Simulated scan of single mutants.
Amino acid sequence: MLSTLELRHIIESALRPLSCECRVDQSGSLQALIFEPVSGRVELLVTGISTASLNCNRAIGKLIAEIQEDLETTHGQRPTLRIG
């Protein structure tokens, strides 16, 4: 299993050119705040991400694809998928 630090790096890097800050909340779940880097405008906040479910590249890729889909649906933005 990847460390929280590694998960954060993968997710944050994959959502560029938008900025992403991943944090572990009080319940131990991951939350991802995705925002426009210049203006700081929040594009999406994803909460309650189970780190236990992110145990392989496929699961991480699926999460990133779901976040990208949400971004595209709500804002018409879809960053290029980058894993690793």
Rank of each mutant, 00 (worst) to 15 (best):
residue 1 M to R: 11
residue 1 M to T: 13
residue 2 L to C: 12
residue 3 S to E: 09
residue 3 S to Q: 11
residue 4 T to I: 15
residue 4 T to R: 11
residue 5 L to R: 15
residue 5 L to Q: 10
residue 5 L to M: 12
residue 5 L to Y: 15
residue 6 E to F: 07
residue 8 R to N: 14
residue 8 R to Q: 15
residue 10 I to Q: 14
residue 12 E to Q: 12
residue 12 E to V: 10
residue 13 S to D: 11
residue 13 S to A: 09
residue 15 L to I: 00
residue 15 L to G: 00
residue 17 P to W: 07
residue 19 S to P: 06
residue 19 S to L: 05
residue 20 C to Q: 09
residue 20 C to W: 04
residue 20 C to R: 06
residue 21 E to W: 15
residue 21 E to M: 13
residue 22 C to R: 04
residue 23 R to L: 12
residue 23 R to I: 08
residue 23 R to W: 15
residue 24 V to H: 04
residue 24 V to G: 00
residue 25 D to C: 14
residue 25 D to K: 11
residue 26 Q to C: 10
residue 28 G to T: 11
residue 31 Q to Y: 11
residue 31 Q to H: 09
residue 32 A to G: 12
residue 32 A to W: 06
residue 34 I to P: 05
residue 34 I to Q: 01
residue 34 I to N: 05
residue 35 F to E: 07
residue 36 E to L: 12
residue 36 E to V: 08
residue 38 V to F: 01
residue 38 V to W: 02
residue 39 S to Y: 02
residue 40 G to K: 04
residue 41 R to K: 13
residue 41 R to V: 13
residue 42 V to I: 06
residue 42 V to T: 14
residue 43 E to R: 02
residue 43 E to D: 07
residue 44 L to G: 00
residue 44 L to V: 05
residue 44 L to A: 03
residue 45 L to A: 08
residue 45 L to D: 09
residue 46 V to Y: 05
residue 46 V to N: 12
residue 48 G to N: 07
residue 48 G to V: 07
residue 49 I to L: 11
residue 49 I to G: 05
residue 49 I to D: 04
residue 50 S to V: 12
residue 50 S to C: 13
residue 51 T to E: 12
residue 51 T to V: 15
residue 52 A to M: 05
residue 52 A to T: 05
residue 53 S to E: 12
residue 53 S to K: 10
residue 54 L to M: 08
residue 56 C to R: 11
residue 57 N to Q: 12
residue 57 N to Y: 14
residue 58 R to Y: 08
residue 58 R to C: 09
residue 59 A to C: 13
residue 59 A to S: 02
residue 60 I to M: 09
residue 61 G to T: 14
residue 61 G to M: 12
residue 61 G to C: 09
residue 62 K to H: 13
residue 62 K to A: 14
residue 63 L to V: 04
residue 63 L to G: 06
residue 65 A to Q: 00
residue 66 E to G: 04
residue 66 E to Q: 05
residue 67 I to V: 02
residue 67 I to A: 03
residue 67 I to S: 01
residue 67 I to E: 04
residue 68 Q to R: 03
residue 68 Q to G: 05
residue 69 E to Q: 05
residue 69 E to P: 00
residue 69 E to L: 01
residue 69 E to N: 07
residue 69 E to I: 02
residue 70 D to E: 13
residue 71 L to T: 15
residue 71 L to I: 13
residue 71 L to G: 08
residue 72 E to M: 02
residue 72 E to P: 01
residue 72 E to W: 05
residue 73 T to A: 08
residue 74 T to Q: 10
residue 74 T to G: 08
residue 75 H to E: 07
residue 75 H to S: 06
residue 76 G to H: 11
residue 76 G to L: 07
residue 77 Q to A: 03
residue 79 P to L: 00
residue 79 P to W: 03
residue 79 P to Y: 00
residue 80 T to G: 04
residue 80 T to V: 05
residue 80 T to I: 01
residue 80 T to R: 03
residue 81 L to R: 04
